[in-house]
């Protein structure tokens, strides 16, 4: 069984966001493998461990992204491909899905796994867009995956509960927290990763032009949300402060 995991390198979720000149500053920010993509990579490796085959990790990014891909190789993925091109500097979900769609079109796979969202833009758009480009069935936000004969059974989170779906393979799935517990790359794994293939390709290698991957959206400004002010801390006997709180909620905030 061949599995492709699509990953993105993102800001650390602990990072404080600073804005200068209408853009988010990446000064001094720690970059990590998008947490939801970790579940995707982990699941890909588990599928391989169970069914055999190969795990390929792919990404659209920059030089720095190699580190995230190397991390996936250390976890146990077999090889990695990075698409890197100046024309992808302002890539949006359309650009990324067109690029990955072209890259994957020539690969053999049974399952494609993505994280269900990236913690930076929180868009949840690439998995569905990529499934459309490859004309694959999709199931997003999955918390369980069982491979059957030519199909897979998944549990996916929906509003107010979850759905159990049968999906014909090949298919694309996007991972949600809860799908698995992500392993750490072991030290021997880190050493082995050094010798695994990490191929860097440009748009030209994929037969794509800058126009093909032109973003459909543009960020014209970024600003910080207005800071919340600390309010009133009520102190005193429990009965008194609770009574005061209820009065405030009713008469001042008018929320009950």
């Amino acid at each position: 069984m061949n599995i492709v995991a699509c990953i993105k390198q993102t800001f650390d979720t602990e990072a404080k966001i600073a804005v200068s000149g209408g853009q988010v500053s990446d000064q001094g920010v720690n970059l990590i493998l998008n947490p939801y993509d970790e579940y995707a990579v982990e699941e890909a490796i588990r599928l391989k461990e169970k069914n055999g085959g190969e795990v390929v990790v792919v990404s659209v990014g920059t030089d720095k992204t190699q580190e995230a891909l190397r991390y996936c190789l250390a976890m146990g993925a077999d090889r990695a491909v990075l698409v890197q091109d100046p024309a992808l500097g302002k890539a949006d979900s359309a650009s990324v899905s067109v690029t990955l769609g072209k890259l994957l079109a020539d690969m053999e796979y049974d399952v494609i796994l993505c994280g269900n969202q990236a913690v930076d833009d929180g868009a949840s758009a690439v998995p569905s867009r990529l499934a459309e480009k490859l004309d694959l069935p999709q199931a997003n936000v999955i918390t369980a995956l069982e491979i059957g004969d030519g199909s897979a059974t998944v549990r996916r989170e929906v509003d107010g509960g979850s759905e159990i779906l049968d999906v014909q393979l090949p298919a694309l799935f996007s991972a949600q927290k809860g799908l698995n517990e992500v392993r750490y790359p072991s030290l021997p794994g880190i050493m082995k990763a050094k010798r695994k293939e990490l191929k860097v390709v440009g748009l030209g290698d994929l037969g794509l032009s800058a126009d093909d991957v032109a973003p459909k959206t543009e960020i014209v400004n970024v600003e910080l949300p207005p800071a919340r002010q600390a309010g009133k801390v009520l102190k005193g006997e429990v009965a008194d402060v609770v009574a005061e709180l209820v009065t405030l909620l009713k008469n001042e905030a008018k929320v009950i």
């Binding site: 966001i17 032109a214 973003p215 459909k216 959206t217 543009e218 960020i219 600003e223």
Partner: peptide, 8 residues
């Protein structure tokens, strides 16, 4: 952060 987008 809040980002303002235009769609092309």
């Amino acid at each position: 952060a809040l980002a303002t987008y235009k769609v092309k």
